[in-house]
Simulated scan of single mutants.
Amino acid sequence: MRRFSKKSHGAVADINITPLLDLAWVLLVIFIITTTAMVQGIELKLPESTPHETDMESNTPTLSVKKNGDVYMDEEKVKLSELEKLIRDLKAAKGGKLPLVLRGDAGVEYKHVVAVLDILQRIPVEDLAIATKPINE
């Protein structure tokens, strides 16, 4: 007579997915934090104005003019001579309608912002929002 059962004691084929779910949540949180940081774009001190909110999509292209006159399209520095072609190509790719956000540093010389506005007027860009921060009263 045999005292041991004939059951086989093989390897368990189940996968514990709890650590995988934890990893997925951590990656999701990191993605959310980095994308909100990227939306801010180039660091500028925006001029103040009275509050007026305009709803823009989160993926709206942003033109930033720094205090020294450098122009950035989202995060990429562009020359004024190349800006018109870049925006024309982007507008054609979007089907003729291109909303833009223009951000200018509070200390930028007016001529730099006017140069960008002249280019936008030649294209023409109809949906233009100028970013400011609200006046603290």
Rank of each mutant, 00 (worst) to 15 (best):
Q40P: 08
Y110I: 09
A92I: 01
K97F: 09
D74E: 03
N68L: 05
L102P: 08
V39Q: 11
P51I: 02
I123G: 07
T34V: 11
K79S: 15
L44F: 02
V65I: 03
L63W: 03
R88N: 11
A106H: 14
K94I: 02
E109W: 00
M56S: 13
K85C: 04
A106E: 13
Y72N: 03
I30G: 11
T132H: 11
T35F: 03
E75K: 12
E48V: 07
Q40L: 09
L100E: 02
H112C: 04
D105L: 00
V116W: 00
P47Y: 05
D70V: 06
K77E: 14
K97R: 13
L44S: 02
E48S: 15
D127M: 07
E76A: 14
E48I: 08
R122M: 05
E76H: 15
E82N: 07
G95R: 00
S49K: 06
T35C: 09
V71N: 08
M73K: 06
D70L: 09
V101A: 07
V116C: 04
S58Y: 07
S81R: 03
V113N: 11
A129C: 07
A131K: 09
E82K: 07
P61G: 12
K85N: 08
H52P: 04
D74H: 07
L100A: 04
L46E: 05
K77P: 09
T35S: 15
V65T: 00
H112Q: 08
H52N: 12
V101L: 08
G95D: 01
H52F: 06
T36Q: 11
P47R: 06
V26G: 12
E57K: 11
L80N: 09
L90Q: 15
A92F: 02
E82S: 13
M73T: 08
L120W: 01
S58P: 07
I87F: 01
S58W: 07
G104P: 00
V114H: 14
V26L: 15
L86F: 11
H112T: 03
D70A: 10
L100F: 00
A129M: 01
V101I: 14
V78Y: 10
G41R: 06
D74F: 01
A115M: 02
V113K: 09
E57R: 12
E48F: 13
E84H: 12
